[in-house]
């Protein structure tokens, strides 16, 4: 099965280095989360992967073949991005036909079903739709094109809670019906935490986390207790952030705990959810060691 490899990709805009020597791989039939703060380089990375823009150095390959100017590879990918690339005057139904023309086939049955569920008028012009409906049209196309790699860049932009819920349901159903690789780049981490199997966290142009979701959570801890007890226990561990409330302190740790170390009765250790981990890992003010 096809695999995408991002190999030492760097991207500069003028003097600003947005992506710094990024390397990772995307395996077939897996759901990935690509997380990062605003300006971390998520969209730039996805744009490079789909050759909308070019890398300053490094390469993106699928089965050892460069994606650049490779129709076979490009026809196996779809990037649903926040930018609208469809002609404003084009009707929704025509957008489906355009996708069929380019990708060779299109799941009209599913597209019509999704359009009905989301309440999209097929005869509406794309430019006349709201931001939310722009996202919905693009999501429908993304779920109905015959590709093995679907990238979502802010897929739920402008969507209300009901539509967001519906999208996640449809995404999982679509994955169940035809497993393929999805990469979801979003700020709404809590909403995708239960969906993604593997997480990439991008911070200041670098991948700081590249691991299975469960493994990340298993290695994230919140140590809570009296200030001194917590501080003593955390010495030498990879503390990525902390909170204090009165006499209580919570240290957030990413990495293995010291099994030899005795855990005092006064402190409590629990796992941290993905969102909290993300916040502390990407918070510039906190000094931490990224593993």
């Amino acid at each position: 099965m096809a695999q995408i490899k991002i190999d030492h990709v760097t991207r500069k805009f003028g003097k600003n280095e947005v992506l710094k020597d990024i390397s990772f791989e995307l395996e077939p039939n897996k759901i990935y989360g690509l997380l990062g703060r605003n300006g971390a380089g998520k969209s730039t990375l996805l744009n490079i992967m789909t050759t909308r823009i070019f890398a300053s150095s490094g390469k993106v390959t699928m089965d050892q073949q460069s994606v650049v100017e490779n129709d076979d590879i490009l026809a196996d990918m779809f990037l649903m991005s926040e930018v609208d690339l469809y002609p404003e005057r084009m009707r929704v139904e025509k957008i489906f036909k355009q996708a069929e023309l380019c990708y060779g086939s299109f799941d009209y049955k599913k597209a019509y079903k999704l359009a009905e569920e989301f309440g999209v008028k097929l005869t509406a012009r794309f430019g006349g739709l709201s931001t939310g409906y722009h996202s919905i049209v693009k999501l429908i196309v993304a779920l109905c094109v015959p590709v093995n790699f679907v990238f979502f860049d802010e897929p739920v932009l402008g969507l209300d809670a009901n539509h967001r819920e519906l999208f996640y349901q449809e995404l999982l159903q679509s994955y169940e019906e035809r497993p393929r690789t999805f990469v979801i780049s979003t700020h709404l981490i809590e909403e995708i935490a239960q969906i993604v199997e593997h997480v990439f966290i991008l911070d200041q142009g670098k991948i700081v986390i590249d691991d299975e979701t469960q493994a990340i959570i298993d290695r994230s801890y919140a140590i809570t207790g009296p200030k001194k007890a917590v501080s003593d226990y955390s010495v030498g561990l990879n503390v990525i952030g902390h909170q204090t409330l009165g006499g209580l302190r919570t240290d957030y740790i990413y990495g293995d705990l010291d099994d030899e170390r005795v855990i005092p009765d006064t402190i409590k250790i629990e796992h941290v959810d993905l969102q909290k981990l993300f916040v502390y890992l990407t918070e510039g003010s906190v000094n931490y060691v990224k593993e």
Binding site: D71, L74, L85, Y86, P87, Q98, L101, C102, Y103
Partner: peptide
């Protein structure tokens, strides 16, 4: 540019 936008969106290389 408009052509480029919708073709690249639909997985078409610049050459094609």
């Amino acid at each position: 540019y408009d052509n480029f936008k919708w073709t690249i969106q639909n997985g078409i290389s610049r050459r094609t």
